[in-house]
Amino acid sequence: MRVLVASAPLVGHVRPLLPLALALRDAGHAVLLATAADGLTAAPAGLPVRDVAPGFDFGRIARRVLLRHPLIARAELAGTAGTRGAALLFGQVNDELADGLVAVARDWSPDLVVHEPFAVAGALAAARVGVPAVRHENSLFDGRELVRVTTGRLAAALRRHRVAELPPPAAAIAVAPPSVAVQDGWPMRYAPHTAGELPHWLREPADRPRVLVSRSTVAGPGGAGPMRAVVAAADRVDAEFVLVRPDRRLSRSALPPNVRTVDWIPLDAALPASAALVHHGGAGSVLGALAAGVPQLATTGPGDRRFNANLAARRGAGIAAPSRQITPGTLTRLVTDPALRAAAREVRREIAAMPPPAELVARLESLG
């Protein structure tokens, strides 16, 4: 079977799709990843990838779209736009992906297209060549709603490729643990795919609680995440803090004795020996902490970050707070509150009980 995997051109969108893509490849199927720009860098060695939008610039699209819609832009920056901002941004993103994805589908002749909700142009390509499409969730939103609002902005692309309307997916794959977010589809265990080497000292617990602090893979508002706030409070907290990929200015500044820095590391490998994760509120970070069973502090930033952070907090497995409210007391609670640890471990068991990606291969084979 030939499987085309379509993703929006962002690292954080590609990576959640890789475990299933690699499971399909390991089962003997031909798999081709179709994305663009930064997404191309996320493809692991041995997985073919095709650039479907040469010259793609997400920042240019974001600036142009949000300047045209200032009220939605303001809500998007506050994290209160819901899917309205996603519809505008990813409607334009998918318009730019559509022609390349259709061309790849015609040239490569897949038997099945797997696409994320933010890459609904993959469903368009599947419809154009007459093969089934499968929606693979990679966020904590309801993928059905994301596809609906994004498709509403794809009228021109649908006309260009003579597709009257997108058919419903042949199947959907849900990665969110049900106690955190309800998604439609076959459940699949969230299995993060991260890059980098893990230093030996991160494999074992530290003498005091270790807190990993990460930031977004996307530049722009809120991209630096909570790192500066954590550094400002760190010397008054009985814990060790590890900044993952801090920006150059922060990494070159004088840091408290209990703060260290590292470059890219596989967070999923480092989390088991850590006490907590502090991050920017991205869906991958929320799910990664939940899969590891560690408490998290997620900042309530732009886009979907407020939504994601609040989901973790409502489940009791984390704290949701803007960066300005990160204090020594907040960080101390993060590493000492037994209720946070208990809830995080409950969700870890819930995720572990979901089928791994390899178990979904046979179900996908029945569609192709």
Rank of each mutant, 00 (worst) to 15 (best):
E359M: 12
F118T: 15
L287G: 06
R306C: 10
G318R: 01
R333Y: 10
D263I: 00
D184E: 15
R333M: 09
A42Y: 08
A36N: 08
V114L: 15
A233M: 12
G225M: 12
P178H: 02
P70A: 08
G196F: 11
A233F: 09
G28F: 04
A133H: 11
A156Q: 14
P246H: 02
P355T: 05
E346Y: 01
P199C: 11
G293S: 02
T41Q: 14
D337V: 05
A78T: 07
R333S: 13
E116I: 09
D268H: 14
A155H: 11
V113R: 00
A275W: 08
G82A: 12
D268Q: 14
A171P: 00
S216T: 11
R349G: 12
A320V: 08
T83A: 11
P302H: 03
L250E: 08
R249T: 13
P168T: 04
V93N: 00
L360D: 06
T217P: 09
G329V: 14
G196E: 07
V149M: 09
A298D: 07
L97N: 02
S7W: 01
V335R: 01
V102Q: 04
V129H: 10
R159I: 04
D57N: 13
A339T: 11
D107M: 05
P257C: 04
L88G: 06
H115E: 05
A229R: 04
Y190M: 13
V213I: 11
A206K: 07
S253C: 08
A309W: 09
L77H: 01
R324L: 08
P205A: 08
L67T: 14
L364G: 06
R314L: 10
A27V: 01
V163T: 07
P221C: 07
